[in-house]
Structures are given as C-alpha cells and as structure tokens.
Design a protein around this nucleic acid. Structure first.
Lengths: 236, 236
DNA sequence: ATTACAGGTTGACCTGGATCAAACCAGACA
DNA sequence: TGTCTGGTTTGATCCAGGTCAACCTGTAAT
C-alpha cells in the first residue's frame, strides 16, 4: 500500500476508468477519495470469496482474473480484467466478495472505498451516472458470456474471446492484432466453458484456417473479418 | 398506462423491491417518482433490444423473460423475472436496451424513470445503497448462470434452476415445493444452454429418481436435499 | 364430442467436445 | 549444457447431449 496525490488526474487510463467525463474540479474530489494504491504480484489474490467487502478497485496496471468455485472443487473463471476496469462490484450486494480475484501478472490497483464512492456520487451527478453505467456494462458483458456459453461452438467461443481481447487492447492503445495473453489455456477454457485440450485444438484450427497465428501466449490476428464471420455462423 | 397514488406504500412486494428498508417519509418520495404503471399481456414485449432506455421497471405482478439474439437468429434467454424484481438495468450502460423483455403471463409493471431515480438516490442514501445492491446482485446472479453453463451437466443445471425458482417463490409467500412454471421447455433450455428434448429428459430423470413430480408445467419438489446433492456432484 | 395444434415426451442415432494418454516446447535453474 | 517443470499440442477413444423423427397430451375452438 502507498498513498498518492493526484491519483486520477495524472493517470492515462482516466478516460476508461471511473473518472470518465469529469471536470477538473470533480477530478480533484475523486482524487481525494482514491488515496491508496496496492501492488499485487503475479499469482497473488486481490481479494477472496467470502472476505468482507469494503472497497472496489480500479486496475492501474496489470491483468487479473476473477473466479467462483463450487464446494465440490469445480471452478469457473468469470472474467479477465485489464487496466482501467473495476474489480469488486460483485461484493456490493451482500457486503462480502463472492469471487476470487487473482493477478495474472504483477499489477497495481487503486483502492476506492465504497462508502466514499457512494457519498461522492451523491454529490457529483456525472460520477453517479458513470458508475451506474459501469455496473450496467458489467451486466451486459455477462449476458454476452451467457450467450457464448449457451449457444456457441468451441471455435466461435474462442473467436469471440479473441475479438473481445483485441478490442480492449485497442482501447488501451495497444495493437489490436498482436498481443500476449496472460492467461493459460486452462483459464481460457474455464472462462469459455471448455477443457484446455479443446481450447488448444480450437487455436490450432483457427490457425489452420489462416485467421490467426499462435505461438503459445503470443497471438496475431490475421483476419478479423474471418473471425467475426465465424461467430455468426449457424450451428451445425 | 395508468397513474396511481401511493404506489409503493400499499404494495406487498415493497420489501422485495426497490423501496426496501425506507422510512415512511422516504417511501412517499419514492411514490412520487413512480407515478405510472403499465399492463403487459402474455406474449407482449415490455421493451425490445435497441429501443431507447428511459426507465427501469419493477414487476408488480406477473412473470417475464429477457432474451438476447444474435444476427444469425440464435437466441439466449438471459433470465426469468417475477414480482418485485427490476427489469431494464442492462439499458443504463448505453442508454439503449440490449435485450428483449417479454411477459410470460399477463403482468403489470411500475415505471421508474431512470433520471428521477438517479436524482432521488442522490438525496436518499438508503435508496442509493439499495439500488447499488440490486445491480450488484444481478451481477452475482449472472455469475451463477455462467457457472451453471460453464461447468454443470444437464441434470445439475435443471436442479439448480428448480431450486432457484423454489427459493424465489418462497420469498414471495408461495409454496416452495409446488408451483407452475410459466415458461416452456424450450425457454428453459435456452436459459440453461440445453435443447428442449434434453430438458424434457432431465425432468423425467429427476422424476424417476424421486426428486420431483412433474406434469407439464406443474412441478412438485419431493426431495430438496436430493436436488441440492445433485448440484454438488463431481462431473464424470 | 371432434378436431386442431402447440407443447411435451420418448426413442434411435450421431457428433462435438471430454477424457485419457503420450509427446513436445520454452523458460528457469543448476 | 543438460534437465526439470509447467504449460501446450496432438492423437485415440468415449459419451452426454444434440439431432431427427414419431408419438402423446391438454386445451381450446368448432
């Protein structure tokens, strides 16, 4: 943990993150709310299911996954998060975290005490509205995953996944067509409702079809249109 | 559409719905916000994907489903909603609805203009916090569905689904063990990521195992513990 | 009562992805 | 430089659920 001044004002993720669309004045007030950061090493937990919820977290750098697990040991990755995205929204409802959040690379988050966020968003309309939009966006994203898990075949799921990553990398100023994935095949599989072998085969088939070039975690997208077309194929 | 006075104060779903935990004073102010209701006949749309978002809706009576559809015609039921639950939260993010909402029986909703809800929740802390909890709960629910779609086998999915319905009916004062389902096998299948035939077979197998008694849409739960145990079985 | 029809059940067969098993590869470390 | 290890790829086989098809049931209209 370390405290900071001018957290948000200087952050280049500002426009992707919570302070989106705020005036300088308002930005300063948000800065007062976000006084501490926390570094999380690769493999460490940001929070665990069942622990008390007090804050949400904005990713300043790095990469995370969230997962839930059943009593019997089965688990499901519910999302991968990158810079500018918020973690911990699931904890608001019961004031307990309902999933685990693990850093997939060395990362840093800004700590946003939730009660202060509520106070401030009673005072700043723009902040309030934007926070609501962020929560709503998470719901929409989840519906997309449900769609994917409920109706798509393995290759379509992977195509959808890669397109989504690509688009999020683009929004952060990275190449849309050439990136390293931080997660393993098994984690991708868990997220997509597939086994790691199936994920691996799907990668191979997309490569054979000339849509992508893969080498371990390094992916290059060669034919975006092809991937998109794949997603909209009728099943069977 | 018809206007009403004392919408929430007289509503027996008050404690399940948005006004949860409000004082009488606050309740009156919420009443002023919720001035109109709307009846939707079975099969009619409350809203459609792509239409402008202006309000969220609280279900006063009846039963709904929401679904998203892909260009190619495939669709996925993303949820079933009953009295006291909110509809339309997905629309906040883009100010366009992202799914369709259809009444599965003759229903009535209270219209909650979203901008007024934001105004009021800047003034009433309890309302603000409760609204955040409701949104967060939706995210948690979605994670549950992702878990179900990603890791469970057909019978487990159906067991989880029935237990969830049972629990929600209980919260509304209906029998936890004896209810009519408003949705078809196909709709259940779409929600659970299964074909209707598989849903039908799963019903039959749960019945053979003595966990439930089914006759079309009428379900009786005979062995809750059995259903719960089923959900926590290791796959294969 | 008779018919029509949407929804539900059941059977037979097929297939995509799971499972099991054996290499393979790249980076870490001695 | 070799070897260890966690992750990945690939092959062979299996099976849960999909697909196709026939039939049943309850409701509602005539």
């Amino acid at each position: 943990m370390n405290s900071v001044k001018r957290a948000c004002g200087n952050c280049n993720l500002r426009e992707l993150c919570l302070p989106f669309g705020l005036s300088n004045d308002e930005l300063e007030r948000v800065d007062e709310m976000v006084t501490t950061r926390r570094k999380i090493k690769q493999g460490e937990y940001l929070y665990r299911a069942g622990s008390a919820f007090e804050s949400i977290y904005a990713i300043r750098s790095g990469f995370f996954k969230t997962d839930v697990l059943l009593e019997d040991g089965r688990d499901q990755v519910t999302g991968f998060q990158m810079g500018g995205e918020l973690l911990g929204l699931d904890g608001i409802s019961t004031e307990l975290h309902t999933c685990n959040s693990v850093a997939l690379e060395n990362s840093e988050v800004c700590i946003i005490p939730f009660s202060r966020l509520e106070t401030l968003s009673r005072e700043i309309r723009t902040l309030q509205n934007h926070f609501h939009k962020v929560m709503s966006r998470e719901i929409v994203r989840d519906h997309g995953v449900m769609m994917l898990l409920g109706t798509m075949r393995a290759e379509e799921r992977l195509a959808a996944f890669l397109l989504n990553l690509s688009q999020r990398f683009t929004a952060r100023g990275y190449s849309h067509a050439d990136f390293y994935m931080r997660m393993t095949r098994e984690e991708i599989g868990s997220y997509l409702g597939l086994k790691l072998e199936t994920v691996s085969r799907a990668f191979s088939r997309l490569q054979e079809a000339g849509h992508i070039a893969v080498q371990q975690k390094h992916v290059r997208i060669l034919n975006i249109a092809g991937l998109k077309a794949l997603m909209n194929r009728q099943p069977a």
